[in-house]
C-alpha cells in the first residue's frame, strides 16, 4: 500500500470539505467556517515559530500590516489586492527581519524576545491609530467596494467562493507546516530551542535558522490579515493588530495544541464556536463572558495540559499507559 491510513483519511477529509458548500448553502454556518479557516491559518502561522519556543507577541503587528497595507494600497493607490497582498506580505517579512535579526544576533530569547515583539505590536497599533487621516484610526477602515470586476478586486459577495479560498489557504498552511516538520530546519530549530550554544557548536547556524522560520511565520500571518480584511471588508486596529490579538493567537494555539499540525485549527474551532455560542445564547449580555472563560481555560491548560487538547488526546491514543505518568511529572 503506497498511501498510509492517515493520508487517505486526510484526502477524504479535504474532499468532503471542498464539496461541502455545494451541498450545504446556509450562509451563517459558512460564515463561521470561513472565519475558523482564516483564523486557523493565522494560528498555524504563529505556531510555526511558537512550537520551537520562539514565543512572539508581535504577530498582532504582522497581521495588522497585512490587513492595512492591502486595504490602503487599494483605496489610495488603486492597486489590486492581487498585487497589494504580496506587497503586504513582503512588508511584514521585512519588518520581521528588522526586528528579529538583531534579536537573534544578540541572543535575545525567552521573556526578552516576547517583550521586544510585544513592543513591535504596540508600535504597529499606535502607528495605525496615529495616522488616522489615512487609516481611520481606531474607528476602523473599509476597503472601497469595487465597481469593476470582483475578481480583480478580490471582493466576492457569495460565501461559497470565500469558503473555497479560505480552505485552499488553510490547506497550504498545513502543507507548509508539514514541509517544515520534515525538513532539516525542524531538527535545527529543536536543537536550538534545547541549547543554543551546543547547537551552534554542532554546526547549526542559529541566527539564520531562527530568521528563516520567523520571516516565514510573519509572512503567513500577514496573508491571514489581508484575507481577513478582504473577507470582512472592515478592519479596525483592535481586531487585527495589537497585543490583544497577539495574546488571542497564543491562547488558541496553546488550547488546541502547540506541537501538532491540527492543534491551532482545533484551537480556532473551540474559541470561535465558544464566542459565537455565547453570543447567540446570551446576546449582548454575553459581552465579556467568552474572554472570561478563555482566561480561566488558558490558565488551567497551561497548568494541567501544556500540550493542549489535541496534543493530549493524541498522546493518550499513542501510548495509553505511558501518558499518565508523563502527565503527573508535568
Amino acid at each position: 500500500m503506497s498511501l498510509s491510513r492517515n493520508q487517505i483519511l486526510g484526502g477524504v477529509g479535504i474532499l468532503a470539505l471542498v464539496l461541502l458548500p455545494f451541498v450545504y448553502h446556509s450562509a451563517y454556518p459558512l460564515h463561521i467556517l470561513i472565519l475558523i479557516l482564516i483564523w486557523s491559518f493565522a494560528y498555524t502561522s504563529w505556531s510555526m515559530m511558537g512550537r520551537f519556543g520562539l514565543v512572539s507577541l508581535g504577530h498582532g503587528g504582522f497581521m495588522g500590516v497585512g490587513a492595512y497595507v492591502t486595504a490602503l494600497m487599494w483605496n489610495h493607490l488603486g492597486v489590486s489586492p492581487w498585487i497589494g497582498i504580496p506587497i503586504a506580505m513582503v512588508t511584514a517579512g521585512v519588518l520581521a527581519l528588522i526586528v528579529a535579526y538583531p534579536c537573534f544576533r544578540f541572543r535575545i530569547t525567552g521573556h526578552y524576545f516576547a517583550l521586544v515583539t510585544l513592543a513591535l505590536s504596540g508600535i504597529v497599533l499606535q502607528v495605525i491609530t496615529a495616522t488616522r487621516d489615512w487609516t481611520g484610526g481606531s474607528l476602523g477602515y473599509t476597503p472601497e467596494r469595487t465597481k469593476g470586476s470582483g475578481l480583480a478586486a478580490l471582493q466576492f459577495t457569495d460565501k461559497e467562493t470565500w469558503y473555497l479560498i479560505a480552505l485552499a489557504v488553510w490547506v497550504v498552511g498545513l502543507a507548509i507546516w508539514h514541509f517544515v516538520d520534515r525538513s532539516m530546519a525542524r531538527y535545527a530549530m529543536e536543537a536550538i530551542s534545547e541549547d543554543e550554544d551546543a547547537s551552534a557548536a554542532a554546526g547549526v547556524n542559529v541566527t539564520a535558522e531562527k530568521l528563516k522560520i520567523t520571516v516565514l511565520s510573519a509572512v503567513m500571518t500577514a496573508l491571514a490579515g489581508a484575507l481577513y480584511c478582504q473577507y470582512q471588508m472592515f478592519i479596525s486596529p483592535d481586531t487585527v493588530s495589537g497585543i490583544a490579538v497577539s495574546l488571542q493567537m497564543v491562547f488558541a494555539v496553546v488550547v488546541g495544541g502547540i506541537y501538532v499540525s491540527l492543534g491551532p485549527t482545533v484551537g480556532a474551532i473551540i474559541t470561535i464556536l465558544m464566542a459565537e455560542g455565547l453570543r447567540i445564547g446570551f446576546g449582548t449580555k454575553a459581552v465579556g463572558w467568552d474572554n472570561l472563560v478563555y482566561g480561566v481555560l488558558l490558565v488551567v491548560f497551561i497548568i494541567f495540559l501544556p500540550k493542549g487538547i489535541l496534543g493530549s488526546l493524541l498522546d493518550l491514543r499513542r501510548k495509553p499507559a505511558a501518558a499518565k505518568p508523563a502527565k503527573a511529572a508535568a
Binding site: G53, V55, G110, H111, A114, L247, V250, F251, V254, V287, G288, W289, D290, N291, L292, Y294, G295, V296, L297, L298, V299, I302, I303, P306
Partner: peptide, 19 residues
C-alpha cells in the same frame, strides 16, 4: 514562557470579569 502565558490568561480573566 508558560508562566508568562498563564498570567496572560489572568489578564483576559480580569479584563472580562470587569466587563
Amino acid at each position: 514562557i508558560n508562566q508568562l502565558l498563564a498570567t496572560g490568561g489572568v489578564l483576559f480573566f480580569l479584563q472580562s470579569f470587569a466587563t
